[in-house]
């Protein structure tokens, strides 16, 4: 079972995660308007910027984050922003959307000018996250674990970050055991998605380059 302290931590993270959203108007644009490839590029760029802004707000609420060295805070956010964005978009993509919206979203992304070489692994990732049928709690904790990864480039105080990440991993582990008693591999599978995210992060720079060239 989760201890009282762990339960408080979980609820706190979940609450912060639920508030972490891009403005609704921007999300509506994505589904309602018809844009040219250029306008698609600008809209997706604005959404990415907005995503980083709300991600920072979520991250500020992670217990202990604000007591970290300021440059380490930036190194953690810089290292994880792309992964958190893919994780978040995987969650949105796997949600039950109104009829036709998933197709429209996929179509818009596919027509944004990014090569299939980069688009396909992204949709494969979305599908592999979808198969896990993650709860909101699992998404919140996995995002926190991703952000508080001590092995990001330019991090100085690895130990302090490990101390913040560990309780999140413990809560996630216990939560998985409680909610998936018949699937002992669930926790390991969640962590496996983090490995996939690292690969997507690695290819992200090349993906942006191909987007710009196109």
């Amino acid at each position: 079972e989760l201890t009282q302290e762990q339960l408080s931590l979980l609820n706190y993270i979940l609450d912060a995660y639920n508030k972490y959203r891009i403005p609704l108007d921007m999300a509506k644009n994505l589904l309602q308007e018809q844009f040219s490839a250029d306008e698609n590029f600008i809209l997706l760029t604005e959404m990415a910027t907005s995503h980083v802004q709300v991600l920072v707000e979520f991250t500020k609420r992670l217990p202990g984050f604000q007591s970290l060295d300021h440059e380490d805070q930036i190194a953690l956010l810089k290292g994880s922003a792309v992964e958190a964005m893919f994780l978040r978009s995987a969650q949105i993509f796997n949600r039950k959307l109104p009829h036709g919206h998933s197709e429209m979203l996929e179509d818009r992304i596919r027509k944004s000018g990014i090569s299939d070489e980069y688009i396909n692994p992204m949709f494969n990732f979305y599908k592999s996250v979808g198969e896990l049928q993650m709860t909101q709690e699992e998404h919140a904790l996995l995002t926190a674990v991703t952000i508080l990864s001590p092995d990001r480039p330019f991090v100085k105080d690895v130990l302090s970050i490990e101390r913040l990440q560990e309780p999140m991993l413990e809560v996630l582990h216990t939560f998985c055991k409680l909610h998936h008693p018949h699937n002992p591999q669930h926790f390991a599978r969640l962590l496996g998605r983090l490995t996939e995210l690292r690969t997507l992060n690695h290819h992200h720079t090349e993906m942006l380059m191909s987007w710009r060239v196109n």
């Binding site: 910027t49 980083v52 802004q53 920072v56 707000e57 500020k60 300021h70 805070q73 930036i74 956010l77 810089k78 922003a81 720079t205 942006l208």
Partner: peptide, 22 residues
């Protein structure tokens, strides 16, 4: 670092300070 990561860092720094304007 690439131009992209500088842009990302600028957004992060502004957001950490609570500035969203530009």
């Amino acid at each position: 670092p690439s131009g992209n990561s500088i842009g990302l860092e600028a957004i992060i720094r502004k957001a950490l300070m609570g500035k969203y304007d530009d």
